[in-house]
């Protein structure tokens, strides 16, 4: 499929001689997307800066008066938010590093095994993607307890040892399938082992996929609320999402502080996405994202 040339031939849908009015309408409605989808985030930001204890506003208050920056210090005063942030960072960083290694190993492994085994394993991976996570919580808990992983970051990191998500493994497989087989053959003739094939040939040609999987797994572990809720007990091990829930339990109505803490939790996720967004959203995107 010569997707590139086709896309190149297509750029301006406008060249299809649309009536000018229709074209303008399309443009305007496209721009209407921005305020609509920014709305919840703008609300979060503006509410996080409102001084606590004020009466309800009359109408929608877009810019609070006065602006209370100190709301952002409150979570750290009420709870060990610094520790939670550090825990989140440690867990997420280790999980992302592990995921990149194990998912790309598995992707390359799928490439090297006989085609019949490969298609069975690909089908299995797709089926696994169709299992709702809540259908597994309880028995994972029982198993983790047997393995001594409860109340221990091990329970949060186990998925990363197995590639985190079958989707990531498949993304790597699809990327590696596009590498000319001759490259692998040549390396093999030079006596290259599995790890050399992985580090010298596969990874260098998978930069965009590495970035995409890094960001997707970052978002997955950074946002994870359910696993720490189910598997952690000691407060000193908590990660930020559970910390936010704890803050909510302390005072359900102190909106400015709760939303300031929400901004603190959301900002790294949003920034990492924005940093890598072109890998997801541009026309020359990952072949994989759209092909399953």
């Amino acid at each position: 499929m010569s997707g590139e040339s086709r896309r190149a031939g297509r750029p301006m849908g406008t060249t299809r001689r649309r009536p000018a009015l229709q074209d303008t309408l399309h443009r305007i409605s496209a721009w209407a997307v921005a305020p609509l989808f920014l709305l919840p985030l703008v609300w979060m930001l503006s509410a996080s800066l409102r001084q606590p204890g004020l009466p309800p506003p009359r109408g929608v208050e877009w810019i609070p008066n006065p602006i209370a920056w100190s709301n952002y210090a409150e979570p750290f005063r009420l709870l060990p938010f610094g520790t939670y942030a550090l825990n989140s960072l440690l867990v997420t960083a280790s999980a992302v590093a592990l995921t990149l290694a194990t998912a790309s190993w598995a992707g390359l492994g799928l490439l090297l095994v006989p085609p019949r085994c490969r298609s069975v394993l690909v089908a299995l991976s797709l089926v696994l993607l169709l299992i709702p996570p809540p259908a597994l919580w309880l028995t994972r808990f029982v198993l983790f307890r047997e393995l001594g992983l409860i109340n221990n970051w091990g329970a949060l990191l186990v998925p990363a040892l197995g590639g985190s998500s079958p989707l990531f493994v498949l993304l790597f497989l699809w990327t590696f399938l596009r590498i000319p087989a001759a490259l692998f053959e040549a390396a093999r003739l030079d006596g290259a082992g599995a790890l050399t094939l992985w580090s010298r040939i596969s990874l260098p040609s998978a930069r965009p996929t590495l970035t995409a999987v890094a960001v997707l797994s970052f978002l997955m572990y950074w946002s994870d609320f359910v696993s720490p809720l189910l598997y952690l007990k000691s407060q000193q091990l908590y990660t930020l999402p559970v910390g936010l829930h704890q803050l909510q339990q302390l005072d359900r109505t102190n909106w400015p502080i709760l939303l300031a803490a929400s901004v603190l939790l959301s900002a790294p996720a949003a920034l990492s996405f924005l940093w890598a967004q072109r890998h997801f959203l541009q026309d020359s995107r990952l072949g994989g994202t759209g092909e399953w």
Partner: peptide
Amino acid sequence: VAYLPTVIPEAAYALI
């Protein structure tokens, strides 16, 4: 922008 709300962590999203 259209994708951005999708990456907000669920704990924060619920509070918003």
